Simulated scan of single mutants.
Amino acid sequence: MKNNDAVNAFLALGQESRLNVFRLIVQKGDVGLTPTQIHEMLGIPNATLSFHLKELMQAQLITQERQSRNLIYRPNAVHTAALVEFLLDNCCGGQSCLPKPLTRKVKAL
């Protein structure tokens, strides 16, 4: 991923309503959401929602598919994964920064 692509994605996600729309679409995954469903869940006015969806699409964070008379918005998983990889690419000198899984000791009854 190029720096410019990452900057565009971060600019798109840097607005609270757009971030909420993106998170909602990501939660639905491949099922996707229509603008009507997003409006009902988040209460964003239609004109404003249309603007936010356009911005997220231009940042390549979501995709749009027409199904009959409906538009379905889904996360662009490839681009989102590339963005996360871009962020963590040089993290901790190439070593994992994540803590090792904690193991819980189970007391015998």
Rank of each mutant, 00 (worst) to 15 (best):
M1E: 15
M1D: 15
K2L: 14
N3T: 12
N3L: 14
N4C: 12
D5F: 15
D5E: 15
A6H: 12
A6W: 04
V7A: 09
V7C: 08
N8H: 13
N8D: 12
A9L: 07
F10K: 12
L13R: 05
G14H: 08
G14T: 06
Q15W: 09
E16F: 09
E16Q: 14
S17F: 03
S17T: 02
S17W: 00
R18W: 02
R18Q: 14
L19M: 15
L19I: 04
L19S: 15
V21F: 04
V21P: 08
F22Q: 11
F22A: 13
R23A: 15
L24D: 11
L24M: 15
L24W: 08
I25Y: 00
I25H: 05
V26Q: 11
V26K: 02
Q27K: 14
K28I: 01
K28D: 14
D30Q: 12
G32N: 10
L33P: 03
L33M: 15
P35Q: 12
T36R: 14
I38T: 03
I38K: 00
I38S: 03
H39T: 13
H39K: 15
H39M: 15
M41F: 08
M41I: 07
L42R: 04
G43Q: 01
I44E: 01
I44A: 03
I44R: 01
P45A: 10
P45L: 00
A47T: 07
T48M: 08
F51T: 04
H52C: 01
H52E: 10
L53D: 01
L53P: 09
K54H: 10
K54L: 09
K54S: 12
E55M: 04
E55R: 00
L56N: 05
L56P: 06
M57P: 10
Q58W: 07
Q58M: 09
Q60V: 12
L61Y: 02
L61G: 11
I62H: 04
I62A: 04
I62V: 09
I62P: 08
T63S: 09
E65H: 06
E65V: 00
R66H: 03
Q67N: 03
Q67H: 02
S68Y: 01
R69I: 05
I72S: 00
Y73V: 00
R74Q: 06
P75F: 01
N76Y: 03
N76C: 06
N76W: 00
H79T: 13
H79C: 11
T80P: 08
T80H: 02
T80C: 08
A82H: 05
L83R: 04
L83P: 10
V84H: 12
V84I: 14
E85A: 13
F86D: 11
L87Q: 10
L88N: 13
L88M: 10
L88Y: 11
D89G: 09
D89P: 05
N90G: 07
N90S: 07
C91L: 13
C91D: 10
C91N: 11
C92V: 09
Q95V: 04
S96L: 05
C97H: 05
L98N: 14
P99M: 07
P101F: 00
L102A: 11
T103K: 06
R104M: 10
V106R: 03
V106Y: 04
K107I: 01
K107Y: 02
A108N: 00
L109C: 01
L109P: 06
L109E: 04
